[in-house]
């Protein structure tokens, strides 16, 4: 969390994260290149080795990246993997770029037409699935990954607006789908062993399964079994149902509301962090502020505003405590509106 923009706000956790990430990348490449050289010796050219090693690495990294989000929703202990995920994403883009650039140089350059024109016009079997020009799918995936990597900084998040930014970054699923077909319609058609198909299948099922499980859990969390309403307020739970310094999530009238219990008080704010839509109800009241579990963005509980000099604001909601039951009015007040907390 920063009031100004810097390329990277380095801290100890980020440094550890990046060192581990680069260590794993070196491990992957060392094994892949080492095994390939043992198997093939000088029969494999440097370009082919680079294309294969970095392509395999990039798609392996993409699977890990896509698993982190749902894993962190299913178990908060995975949140440290989410914290610096953008470094993983940007690095994956660079790994994929090495694969892409070497492929274009190897397969399309030094010919009778421009390499990029060649990419789209050499194999023109667009009408058939089995013969489809798989390299085009890889190219468009790389464009999406580039857009994501280029806009991964908070400067773009702020200037594009969180909604546009989030929508843009959801394109990773389109890139992922295209990359699956890029592999299935490309290198797999050359290999006789079913291993890559099996690995890809396991990877896809894991990614899809984790997303479905996380989505189901998220849905279960905030829905009331029965909705008792009185004077615009809806009965939610008792204060004892909420841990100290933690929140209860409730979905009402299309609103996701996080009701926090802290310092013997209750306050309700919109559930979605202004940074990357992190679920504030999974956060904690720390040092006088509601703290987002994803990247530590903070909001004052009574008015949903980040403490100065920060400027993020979320909507707030009115609460009532009647006969030891918490009631919430799901009509949001404008973002940053102060509402007197309910005293316990």
């Amino acid at each position: 969390m920063s009031a100004t923009y810097q390329p990277v706000l380095w801290n100890r956790q980020k440094k550890i994260y990046d060192w581990v990430m680069f260590g794993l990348i070196i491990l992957f490449l060392a094994i892949f290149i080492g095994v390939s050289l043992v198997l093939f010796g000088d029969k494999i050219t440097g370009e082919t080795l680079i294309i294969r090693a970095f392509g395999s690495l990039a798609i392996t990294m993409l699977h890990i990246i896509l698993m982190i989000g749902p894993l962190a929703r299913l178990n908060k202990k995975f949140l440290p993997l989410l914290y610096n995920r953008r470094h993983l994403g940007v690095t994956m883009f660079f790994m994929a770029s090495i694969h892409g650039v070497f492929s274009i140089l190897q397969f399309h350059s030094m010919g009778d037409i421009n390499p990029l024109v060649s990419l789209f016009t050499s194999n023109v079997n667009y009408a058939t699935l089995a013969e489809f020009p798989f390299q085009v799918l890889g190219f468009f995936s790389l464009i999406i990954l580039f857009l994501m990597a280029a806009t991964s900084h908070d400067f773009w998040l702020k200037n594009l607006s969180p909604k546009v930014w989030k929508t843009l970054h959801l394109l990773v699923y389109l890139a992922y789908a295209m990359l699956i077909f890029h592999v299935m319609l490309g290198v797999i058609q050359l290999e006789k062993s079913p291993l890559i198909v099996i690995l890809l299948g396991i990877g896809m099922l894991t990614v899809i399964g984790l997303h479905l499980a996380a989505g189901y859990r998220q849905k279960q969390l905030g829905y009331l079994k029965e909705q008792v309403e009185k004077d615009g307020f809806v009965k939610v739970c008792t204060p004892d149902d909420i841990e100290d310094n933690r929140a209860k999530l409730v979905h009402l009238n299309g609103e996701s509301i996080a009701i926090f219990k802290y310092e013997n008080k209750l306050s309700a704010i919109n559930n979605f962090c202004k940074h990357q839509n992190g679920s504030l109800s999974e956060g904690k009241f720390v040092n006088g502020c509601i703290t987002c579990p994803w990247h530590g963005y903070q909001y004052l509980a009574h008015n949903g505003s980040s403490p100065p000099p920060f400027t993020e604001k979320v909507a707030t909601y009115h609460l009532q405590l009647i006969d030891n039951e918490i009631w919430v009015n799901p009509t949001p007040e404008p973002e940053g509106t102060a509402i007197e907390p309910v005293l316990l």
């Binding site: 892949f32 198997l39 294969r52 395999s56 392996t60 290999e191 006789k192 291993l195």
Partner: peptide
């Protein structure tokens, strides 16, 4: 994963 993917490459 790296070992399996590298080992799986068709002979050249």
């Amino acid at each position: 994963l790296s070992l399996l993917q590298a080992r799986n490459q068709e002979n050249l």
